[in-house]
Simulated assay, not measured.
Amino acid sequence: MGRVVGTVARGLRCPIINQGDNIEDIVVESVLKASEVEGFQINDKDIVSITESIVARAQGNYATIDHIAKDIHAKFGDDTIGVIFPILSRNRFANCLRGIAKGAKKIIVMLSYPSDEVGNHLISLDLLDEKGINPWTDVLTEQEFRQHFGYQKHTFTGVDYIDYYKSLAAEFGVECEIIFSQKPKTILQYTKNVLTCDIHTRFRTKRILEENGAEKVYTLDDILSESVDGSGYNEEYGLLGSNKSTDDGVKLFPRDCQPVVDNIQRMLLEKTGKVVEVMVYGDGAFKDPVGKIWELADPVVSPAYTPGLAGKPNEVKLKYLADNNFANLRGEELNKAISEFIDNKDEDLTGSMEAQGTTPRKLTDLIGSLSDLTSGSGDKGTPIVFIQGYFDNFTNTSVD
């Protein structure tokens, strides 16, 4: 019998990872044990995907709000700090903001509206239309925002983030003013010293501020890019990709991930004779249709991966072939024609009608999204994802 299954993603359980654990040994042993217990073979081009969280935990890549505060004060001194475009997240930004506030004398928090960068909405588009407010031109004070929109709670968390973020600064007796604007230049009316907290648009934001008279501009990847008093750090991403770990601490995005994936690939080759691709993944890149949240709050989906995962898919659309190129064929004759087309397809299908509707995203972004959805973010206990058949296509019919 020929193959009747394509891509399979398995969430694998492993021990709880703690600082100092050998993440490479644990991942390899977990994959081999799962293969033995569940009875699946390990093949060339299989994929082992590891959540960034367990890599960072093994590295002990942690910091406290005191470490953040010390770095903030070293960079800004007693200047009023404009904290602009933070995402609305208790997990992602609350302890970052507490550390920022603890290291400052006064902060001006500028929120983008109607939503933050990753789709967490302060208010709905319909409400904006009803009130006649244009977020691209209208700057609002907190009082004006309340007059127009009142108190709005987040769809999923039930939190009013305006009050919540002000309360975090108030813990340390720091004056905190909230304003609302989509325009980076707005903050320069309040202070020339800015910490821009957006993720994927941070370089543009920094450029606009510097071109318009800002005196000090830092991005979140500048904070804890070096160790402070023995803290964890990330030289490339700083606080970007961090998560709350304790009441006063954060887990940072893992660093030095490339040796990790390379060593796991080498170890699996030694033990199985198969070339398995390996990647570290963070947030997937997909959008929730209810809350409108774009999941990607990490700076990248994958900070490290083996060479076989570079590039983008080069696929044709089967239904297009069936409806157009081979519309007169049926059954085995149609299957044969499509298989021959796939076997002879161009190495680069960019612009081809046969490829329309396929997903021209990076392989690591696609596989990271699959992995993130498979492992989940709660109590599944499967921080390793083992994927088979991802690089198969319609022509792969033999059973391994």
Rank of each mutant, 00 (worst) to 15 (best):
P114Y: 07
S115C: 15
D116W: 13
D116A: 12
D116C: 15
E117K: 09
E117R: 11
V118T: 15
G119V: 08
N120C: 01
H121C: 13
H121Y: 15
L122H: 01
I123Y: 07
I123F: 08
S124K: 08
L125E: 14
L127D: 15
L127A: 13
L127K: 14
L128H: 08
L128A: 12
L128Q: 01
D129L: 08
D129V: 10
E130R: 12
E130D: 13
E130F: 04
G132K: 00
I133D: 02
I133S: 11
I133N: 05
N134R: 03
P135Y: 12
P135G: 04
W136G: 05
W136R: 14
W136L: 13
W136S: 13
W136I: 01
D138M: 04
D138A: 06
D138Y: 00
V139L: 08
V139C: 11
V139Y: 12
L140F: 10
L140R: 05
L140G: 08
L140K: 09
L140T: 03
T141N: 05
T141M: 04
T141A: 10
T141F: 03
E142K: 13
Q143W: 09
Q143K: 12
Q143E: 15
Q143Y: 01
Q143D: 13
Q143T: 05
E144C: 08
E144Q: 15
E144W: 06
F145R: 00
F145Y: 14
R146S: 03
Q147I: 01
Q147T: 12
Q147W: 04
Q147H: 00
Q147S: 12
H148G: 02
H148Q: 11
H148D: 11
F149L: 05
G150S: 09
G150T: 08
G150D: 01
Y151W: 11
Y151M: 12
Y151G: 06
Y151H: 14
Y151D: 13
Q152D: 00
Q152N: 09
K153P: 05
H154Q: 11
H154F: 07
H154M: 07
T155N: 09
F156G: 00
T157V: 11
T157N: 10
G158R: 06
V159Y: 06
V159A: 01
D160T: 04
D160F: 09
Y161M: 07
Y161W: 02
Y161Q: 01
I162H: 01
I162D: 10
I162A: 08
I162F: 06
D163F: 07
D163L: 00
D163A: 12
Y164G: 03
Y164V: 03
Y164Q: 06
Y164C: 02
Y164L: 00
Y165A: 02
Y165H: 03
Y165G: 00
Y165P: 02
Y165K: 11
K166W: 06
S167C: 02
S167W: 04
L168V: 04
L168Q: 01
L168H: 00
